[in-house]
Amino acid sequence: MNIEAAGTGIFAIVLTMAIVTLATRWGGVYVMSFVPISYRVKQFIQAMSGSVLVALLAPIAVTGDSGARIALLTTAVTMLVLKKPLPAIALGIVAAAITRQF
């Protein structure tokens, strides 16, 4: 089904996006209220929560341009050395900007 990108159609699209996103924000909590959290489930979720970020980042690192890769590398190294997210993120972005000037 295609929605025309005009007037109420646009509002319907944005509202749909909002409802789907809200369902993901509430869904995890709602489901957990029926499923008891065993040690195994906790371990699964803990491993999963870090893995989501890794899964999101892996293709960015592999398919990104050299600017993207150097940005991630800079952030990783800075984070390991300084253990502070703000300088790590800032230096990563600066590294990408510098790389892309060449």
Binding site: K83, P85, I98, R100
Partner: peptide, 19 residues
């Protein structure tokens, strides 16, 4: 992109993983 601003999300998430 030339200012590296498209990498804000990636760098942020990575700093969270490593932290």
């Amino acid at each position: 992109e030339s200012l590296g601003l498209d990498m804000v999300m990636g760098c942020f998430l990575l700093s969270m993983v490593i932290g």
